[in-house]
């Protein structure tokens, strides 16, 4: 499925993919019906897809269209894959509250089950990047933190800052902080390229390397204050601010006391 994902943005491909998807679902059904167990599974899945469709019609279709074909204000979701839905809805970015600004991370509107249903429904429309399985996300066991750090500085730090605190882009857009983000969402962001973010293909940054990046982010997130208060980890600006306020303020305070005549 992932190998197909590179075609998902071809304009011409969308209808083709839709047909393929229908075919695929049809095939699954015919194969599934061969054995009773699998058929039960498939039925359950179709129930989930159906639930997702209902949720979609209620919460998403006003912008993204009744068949997720997109509209004037929102892109088509055909072929964006389950990973994209899980990232956008699972981090609360979708549904958007305010169209004028960049979609922000906030408390998700939908429960995890509902997110899964929405993802299943959108994935059923056309193939796209799937939600990575746990084997890709076990950063506590696998991956190299040092290699992840090097990859992060090469591929991520220019937008998300050296410590993953986020940064400004053009015209008021911004790269959000990556601190406190679920590993699965970090992974999904890299393979789907949400909002301004580009896609990081599995061939140029392998799944193992992506896991290392997550490992480094989690290590930076858990890193205690080694030298005292971190001052936001945004570099010399806050350091300068501190020295011009608290720093020189304390010294001038003592100086005033020093020069005051004792009573």
């Amino acid at each position: 499925m992932k190998r197909l994902s590179r075609y998902r943005r071809h304009r011409a491909a969308a209808p083709m993919l839709l047909i393929m998807a229908l075919l695929a679902i049809g095939t699954t059904f015919s194969v599934a019906s061969a054995t009773p167990n699998k058929s039960a599974l498939a039925l359950a899945r179709s129930a989930v897809i159906e639930e997702g469709k209902q949720l979609f019609l209620k919460g998403c279709s006003s912008c993204h269209g009744l068949n997720a074909e997109g509209g004037a204000v929102a892109p088509s979701l055909i072929g964006v894959g389950a990973a994209s839905v899980d990232f956008q809805v699972g981090t609360g970015r979708m549904p958007m509250a305010d169209m004028s600004t960049q979609a922000m991370r906030k408390k998700p509107v939908y429960t995890p089950e509902q997110v899964a249903a929405l993802a299943a429904y959108v994935a059923s429309l056309a193939p796209g990047p799937a939600i990575p399985g746990d084997e890709y996300l076990n950063y506590e066991r696998d991956g190299s933190v040092a290699e992840g750090g090097e990859l992060f500085r090469n591929n991520c730090a220019m937008c998300h800052n050296f410590a993953g605190q986020g940064g400004a882009l053009t015209q008021g857009k911004y790269a959000p902080t990556v601190m406190g983000v679920e590993p699965v969402h970090i992974y999904e962001a890299m393979i789907t390229g949400p909002q301004s973010m580009p896609v990081f293909s599995d061939k140029t940054i392998t799944p193992e390397e992506k896991l290392s990046i997550i490992k480094w982010i989690k290590s930076a997130e858990a890193e205690p204050a080694l030298g005292g208060a971190s001052l936001g980890r945004v570099g010399p600006v806050t350091e300068g601010l501190l020295i011009w306020t608290l720093g020189i303020g304390m010294l001038i305070g003592v100086a005033v006391w020093l020069a005051m005549k004792a009573r």
Partner: peptide, 21 residues
Amino acid sequence: VTDPGDRPIKPEDLEVGAVAQ
């Protein structure tokens, strides 16, 4: 080649919207 990793790159390795250093 990719930085880091030094792997050669084929066009199909990049999706539309992708970047590589």
